[in-house]
Amino acid sequence: MAATVPPTADEYILETRGLTKEFSGFLAVSNVDLKVRRGHIHALIGPNGAGKTTFFNLLTKFLIPTRGAIIYRGRDITPEKPAQVARAGMVRSFQLSAVFPHLTALENVRIALQRALGTTFHFWRHQATLGVLDARARELLELVDLAALAGVVAVELPYGRKRALEIATTLAMDPELLLLDEPTQGMAQEDVERVTALIRQAAANRTVLMVEHNMRVVSTIADTITVLQRGQIIASGSYAEVSRNPQVLEAYMGSADTELENAH
């Protein structure tokens, strides 16, 4: 898709330069140079402990990098704070489901919409004034098939529905760059398909960087795949390229003969 566009300064929405995170001598993320092309679905894969979540935490400033720089939309955001990065349009989901358990599904989504009203500090106003956001919140819930459960407190939703709610909340931010950490993990097959379709739909007008273990999902929707192992990039490219890379097969299966299709 982006191949027809000539390379320009804003061809890449996100770029990391020599990004490194050391945990008391242990290199969880090591010298990672990654470029995420605007409009792409970019998958980040790699065995458990490869440093994928740590990398996400660095991008969203939940962790301070030991070395390296993060360039988002042509701007160095390395010194910024996590909430600032989120407001700039880079919004993440979490590997373990992250909802507000004691708020209803509708309220969960509304939290993401609420900042736009500029009344988040108004403790004297009634929350009924947030009602103007309900229509939009319901639309987003509809998107993930949760409209019927809008009034249910999130803690009572089954796991797959919680993850769907999390995606709806993330989308409510209308992010330019969506970071998803294993969005289909622990989901039943039918939920996986629903979420995959949703990600594809959401990616129509934004960029997605996702950590994903399910190779079927990755092979169907990812434009680019980057493979991380022990904190380092060992391969990057299309699914066809990456899945034939012997180093990748080795990393996944300990043998170069097996197909990546079964990897987990």
Binding site: F100, T120, H122, F123, H126, Q127
Partner: peptide, 14 residues
């Protein structure tokens, strides 16, 4: 039960 209260509860929760 205010807009602020909603955010406060969200912060409390996660």
């Amino acid at each position: 039960h205010s807009p602020f209260g909603q955010v406060l509860k969200a912060i409390r929760d996660n």
